[in-house]
Amino acid sequence: MVRLTRVQQQERTRTSVLAAAREEFTEHGYALAKVDRIAERAELTRGAVYSNFPSKRALYLAVLIDMVENAPAGEPSTRSPRSPAEVLGVFARTWLERLPLVDDTASGGRLHLRSLAGVLDDEHARTVLAQVVRLEALLLAIPLESCEPAQATPVRRVRLAELVLTLLDGSGHLAESAPGFGDPFDLARACEHLSGIDLADTWTPPYLPYVAPARPCGDAWDPPTGLADRISGERADLGADGLITVLGAGRLAAAEEAVRSARPGEQVTVVVVTSDAAETGRLVRLRVTDLIGCLRRVFAPEAWRRVRLVLDDEALAAAAIGLTDLDDETESAVRVRGGAIVARAHGRGAAYAASTADAPNGTRPRSARS
């Protein structure tokens, strides 16, 4: 008789719980689902469920992540950048595939939709979601901007991305309460036409002149290995010259500061940390994984240029930088050059401070003006 190792047994238990939980949530929905029934379905004790997932919300998020990560993947895009209107139409049609089908039950349709209605019922979770959506808009805006003709002043498309995501998310919420309302093809065409709206979009944060300077240094840099870049799906190379910013889940909007402040040609790595991997960490992972799955089917990998996104659940990158006291308000950055950390900054504006640390006369890099 083959004896399972402890790790194998834990994985088997986790798989059984996820399968049972998906059945429970599909049949009863999130609000009416019971952990006791999930344990019965999995033929486990209630304690065995909670030993793997500390709350019903953590379990629900894990089920959604499992669905997203194991869904049949569409063909990744290999096409060169096209017009913003064309790519927005393709992106919208890809995103709208999640809308409930006619024969779905109400609860099953919500699960297929990745609905978070009634799940994030506290202020902290809603605050984190707002920050995640800001990050999502940036992840969509970066490849949109790559579709634009080269200009002296680069075009910012973050507000357009926010508008598109608002329209699509709104259609999802409406699909929950009024199934079948709204034509997906009309929604996709509407997203195409949004690209023609002049939103006067600029990036000019008023706080930048007041950001505390970074601390110049020459610290040895021993980057952790094995971390994945969520955008490309490949290994994240943290040893390259560039900017590494560590953001708590409550500070994700600052990712754009890192992208705009980085010097031309240098890599930008956004590292996300959280003090609550079971719920907050899973919420970030769910939303990012779901969105990037859509984006990869629309944009070729080079559309993100040198931007990397790392979900650092074990705080490996943060520890390598020297950060130990982490929470959802963490905001810190270092600049790496020639295998060493040459600047460190903490607090609001950290990415900007680290990137401009040794700029002549304190001037900003050209890319920061976009």
Rank of each mutant, 00 (worst) to 15 (best):
G322R: 11
A253V: 09
L326C: 07
A359C: 14
G265Y: 00
F91Y: 09
L238T: 07
V133F: 08
V336L: 02
P206D: 13
E69M: 10
T45A: 14
S146H: 14
T45V: 12
R369M: 12
Q131M: 08
D222H: 15
D241T: 02
D183A: 08
Y207H: 14
R285S: 11
G29C: 09
L139D: 04
A255V: 02
V336Q: 01
V2S: 13
G293Y: 03
D229T: 08
G29Q: 07
E75R: 15
W95R: 09
R364S: 14
L194Q: 12
T330L: 05
S83Q: 11
G118P: 05
L309E: 06
A73W: 09
G218A: 14
A240W: 02
R287T: 06
L44H: 07
G250L: 01
W95L: 07
H112W: 12
P143V: 02
G339V: 05
A39V: 07
V164R: 01
L165G: 09
V334S: 01
L44K: 08
G265H: 03
L247G: 01
L61D: 01
V310W: 01
A130F: 10
F25Q: 01
A353V: 02
V90S: 09
K56H: 02
A48R: 14
Q9K: 15
L59W: 06
L247S: 03
P54F: 06
G338T: 02
R364K: 13
E314N: 10
W304P: 05
Y352Q: 10
